[in-house]
Design a protein around this nucleic acid. Structure first.
Length: 544
RNA sequence: GCCUCUGUAGCUCAGUGGAUAGAGCAGUGGCUUCCUAAGCCAUGUGUCGCAGGUUCGAGUCCUGCCAGGGGUACCA
């Protein structure tokens, strides 16, 4: 039982006694200390309903609920009718002890227990190395998955890809042309082909194996296949370096092989949403209120992305997930509504599908915008970025901003001023704690599980405790609202509170009781920082 | 044109319909016989793009407008 839960129960008891229902009880954390630890606006919400003024309702509530116990110290009415609750310290200590008991498990929840979730992200076709744009999506997807796991879901990370089609043909031909170049032929390399240096590397490795035996064999699948294999290997290495693995690589091609694509067309036709026109097959989205119809199969016989995507989502639904998350970049914002509406036409429940859109990363270096494109060669790869600034900084930068804001990644700043980065500030708090604990250890002062926590009385100490015990709420809120960036903000604030505590309160002193209590406190802080950083995929170093 | 994201301090950005809108960076000045100064403290900065509306209460929700990003292909 926490103070928060106690307050909510008391307020529910009050509403019940008045025979009121349908009023949501919301607690908020006041920004200022003088307004207590929790506040509710319920009196103001009730004012209209009870035809009374908020302050007198608030007074009635204050008299109704029990105070002076282990949960609430006192209650005050303020402003237009806020009821401010001051948490009893007893409960703070109780929650703090819980952190030390549960350790790595503290912050984990049960909301998703027994449910299966899948997060589909990155999903870049194997035409080139992962770029910084993919990096944001990779970190976002992995962190969302971590958060869902933390609240109990069984989560699969899935990468959907297509190794057929026009782009892949161009990729194969790009390799072929570079291969001819290796053979000393002068070639005319088209603009729409893949310009990157990695294409030349692949061509050279083909030359090393086959010499010039393929020079008149432009259509040999070896060019595309070698490129795909080599590029995919690199992509997997990059992902591994970023600190996670995909559970499933789902090949779009399998949907053709098993006839799933044809089944979608057939089913859509049965519902009357298909029409052949101008040699193409159309999805009649105008029947659903759209401005124009969309092409399913081009006159060349090739499907557009909508068709396989729809088949893929049907498969996802059939695989029995309770929650399906798609993560797309802003350039795909127009692609998913067609897929979802097709699923609805076919009678599938799309309420379990959540589409998260993230905005682009703008890369700047020396104040200038660096344009990124896979086909043109002037991109900075995710690998190069990690090389420059490290994995921890990379992950932190990508997660620290809300996903639908445009992320400005200042490369020169990340390179040259990385020691002023907030991620080091958080890691430093962790390292400092480890340092104190190891010093205590060398003096034969162990962390005592039975330390008397009521010795923690200063403002710095109680502020730190209050923030620490908010961690489970934070994790749950970040997971359910898909706001992973808030976890980074939370950890930054936690580090601030710890550094302030460190400055004001000496941990190891002659007062053994106080020393033990403070060691318990910093041990709890270390645990929360480590748990939080783990969710972000960032290391918690013991020393820096 | 239509759809969509964004607009908050000099810069980069937080901000769950609540109380006097915050942090980092940049600037200035201070703090270390003592557990890591990668730290702490002090100092100043706002037409929350503009105009209406809803509400007891709006940076937050709604409408319109302005500016920027991204879509609006028989590309993905």
């Amino acid at each position: 039982m926490t103070t928060e839960i106690f307050i909510i129960q008391e307020l529910e008891r009050y509403l019940k006694s008045k025979g009121i229902s349908g009023i949501p009880i919301t607690l908020q954390k006041p920004k200022e200390e003088k307004f207590g630890d929790h506040a509710t606006n319920i009196a103001m919400q009730l004012a209209g309903k009870l035809k009374s003024n908020p302050r007198s309702i608030a007074e009635e509530i204050c008299n109704f609920i029990e105070t002076g116990n282990q949960y609430i110290d006192k209650v005050e009415i303020a402003g237009p009718g806020f009821i401010n609750f001051f948490a009893a310290h007893e409960n703070l200590y109780e929650q703090l002890a819980k952190i030390l008991l549960l350790r790595e498990e503290y912050g984990r929840g049960e909301i998703g227990a027994g449910k299966k979730a899948m997060v589909e992200f990155v999903s870049a076709n194997p035409t080139g190395p992962l770029t910084i744009g993919h990096g944001r999506q990779a970190v976002l997807g992995d962190t969302v998955a971590n958060l869902l796991e933390a609240v109990g879901y069984d989560v699969k990370r899935e990468y959907y890809f297509n190794n057929a089609g026009r782009q892949m043909r161009i990729l194969g031909n790009s390799v072929y042309l570079r291969y001819l170049e290796v053979l000393g032929q002068k070639i005319d390399f088209p603009d729409d082909h893949y310009q990157g240096e990695y294409i030349k590397d692949i061509a050279r490795s083909i030359y090393e194996t086959y010499n010039d035996s393929l020079k008149n064999d432009q259509d040999n699948p070896i060019f595309k296949d070698q490129a795909e294999q080599s590029i995919f290997e690199d992509i997997k290495k990059t992902i591994h370096r970023l600190g996670f693995e995909f559970d499933i690589f789902y090949n779009e091609n399998s949907l053709y092989e098993t006839g799933k694509i044809d089944q979608v067309i057939q089913a859509m036709d049965d519902k009357g949403f298909i029409e052949k026109r101008d040699g193409a097959t159309w999805f009649l989205t105008t029947k659903l209120g759209a401005e124009q119809d969309r092409v399913y199969i081009k006159s060349t016989g090739e499907p557009t992305y909508r068709l396989p995507d729809t088949a893929y989502h049907i498969e996802k639904i059939k695989r029995g997930f309770d929650l399906m998350i798609d993560i797309f970049g802003a350039d795909h914002i127009a692609t998913y509504p067609d897929v979802l509406s097709a699923l609805e036409v076919l009678g599938y429940d799309i309420s379990k599908i959540t589409v998260l859109i993230h905005q682009f990363v703008t890369l700047t270096e020396n104040g200038e915008v660096v344009k990124m494109s896979t086909r043109k060669a002037n991109f900075v790869t995710l690998d190069e970025l990690m090389e420059e600034v490290g994995v921890d900084v990379t992950r932190y930068f990508f997660i620290m901003r809300q996903m639908n804001s445009h992320l400005n990644f200042d490369l020169s700043l990340a390179k040259t001023q990385s020691d002023e980065n907030p991620v080091f500030y958080i890691q430093y708090a962790h390292a400092r704690i480890c340092s104190i604990l190891s010093l205590a250890d060398s003096k034969d002062i162990p962390v005592d599980q039975k330390a008397d926590l009521t010795n923690l009385k200063t403002t710095e100490e109680t502020n730190l405790i209050k923030h620490l015990i908010d961690f489970p709420n934070m994790v749950e809120s970040c997971a359910l609202n898909y706001t992973p960036h808030r976890l980074s903000t939370y950890l930054f604030e936690l580090a601030t509170l710890f550094h302030k505590f460190y400055t004001e309160c000496r941990v190891i002193s002659d007062d053994m009781e106080l020393t033990q209590a403070r060691m318990a406190l910093i041990d709890a802080a270390r645990t929360i920082i480590a748990n939080g950083l783990k969710l972000l995929g960032i290391a918690a170093p013991k020393q820096m």
